[in-house]
């Protein structure tokens, strides 16, 4: 069974063809980069997606050496994300589904990260740390849903890194730029550290880091050290409380080596296995959507076209998982 997964929740427009046995036959992405220092403007990004969509789709089919007719199902990221961007993916998906009569599955973007993570790492029943631009949450699976054991009280880790990065002139997404600058120094400047039980709060940290941004490298270093230590602490608490024996890290920020190292260290202390999604698949991609689509297809039929919605705000812990 072959599935075409379409991702377009924010800056990335991606298509991937994945097979039921987990083989990823193709993975094509085009990322919208706003001008330096600016944030993502939803309508501009959607225009970029509209322009790139056909080529990304065609490339993904060619890479997988198949034609549209060979697809058994199509899955698209129905949310959460930016309205105009989401709609592009949905329109592409619906058009194909309707014209070629292929079953269509709306998928939750973050659950895609988690499911793909489990496929690629082999984790069975982990505590999940999801860190991206759109989410910063600690989750464990219980009674058909992913339950939240901790999250950010204001902005996400991805937004923290991105907003600071933009304030010093980088183009979004800035994670990599910050990681590179941070590696150039080891001088720590005290910044606000806010952990409230299993939750973290980053807005104070963001303002404080901006105030020392003239020392770019030290600011990046201190920002990472503080933010990642906060996440690590919240994670350690959640591990200790849930007693899970595996930790799995997914989402765009999972690509950061410093964060991975800190988390590996807690796993050692808590005697549990550490899994992190391979760097290549940490960011947004079509494969995560396709894989979750395939999993959904094992439990239910595709959605009727009129019901294929798009949702900007969509809580991960509200989705029922039947597979």
């Amino acid at each position: 069974m072959l599935c075409l997964g379409i991702e377009s929740t924010a800056h990335t427009f991606a298509c991937a063809v994945v097979e039921k046995n987990g083989k990823i036959h193709s993975d094509v992405r085009k990322i919208y980069r706003p001008p330096e220092g600016e944030g993502i403007h939803p309508r501009e990004a959607s225009r970029h997606h509209i322009e790139s969509s056909t080529k990304v789709l065609v490339d993904s089919l060619q890479q997988a050496r198949i034609k549209i007719k060979d697809l058994d199902i199509i899955a698209y990221a129905a949310g959460p994300g930016l309205g105009p961007c989401l709609r592009v993916g949905a329109v592409v998906a619906r058009s194909l589904a309707s014209y070629y009569k292929i079953p269509l599955y709306p998928v939750h973007h973050a659950i895609g990260h988690i499911d793909l993570g489990k496929l690629l790492t082999g984790a069975k029943d982990p505590l999940v740390l999801l860190v991206s631009g759109g989410h910063t949450m600690l989750l464990a699976f219980m009674k058909e849903k992913w339950r939240v054991f901790g999250e950010t009280l204001d902005i996400t880790l991805g937004q923290l890194l991105d907003q600071f990065g933009r304030s010093i002139g980088f183009a979004s997404p800035c994670g990599k730029n910050i990681e590179e600058l941070a590696a150039k120094t080891s001088t720590y400047i005290q910044l606000p550290y806010v952990v409230k039980g299993n939750d973290v709060s980053f807005s104070g940290l963001l303002s404080a880091t901006k105030s020392i941004s003239s020392q770019k490298e030290k600011a990046c270093f201190s920002l990472q050290e503080t933010a990642f230590a906060m996440i690590s602490e919240a994670t350690e608490r959640a591990l200790s409380f849930t007693k899970k024996k595996e930790l799995m890290v997914v989402g765009g920020v999972a690509a950061n080596k410093r964060l991975s190292n800190m988390l590996k260290s807690i796993c050692k202390r808590q005697n549990c296995k550490f899994y992190v999604v391979p760097q290549q698949f940490a960011g947004d991609c079509g494969a995560q959507i396709a894989w979750t689509g395939l999993l959904e297809a094992t439990a239910k039929k595709g959605s009727a076209l009129e019901n294929t919605f798009v949702r900007q705000s969509w809580r991960l812990d509200s989705v029922n998982i039947n597979y």
Partner: peptide
């Protein structure tokens, strides 16, 4: 106008992907 703009773009994309 913004809505018409977006809808027309969608029509274009839709026709294009159907090829």
């Amino acid at each position: 106008i913004a809505t018409i703009d977006e809808v027309l773009e969608h029509v274009q994309v839709s026709l294009k992907v159907i090829e």
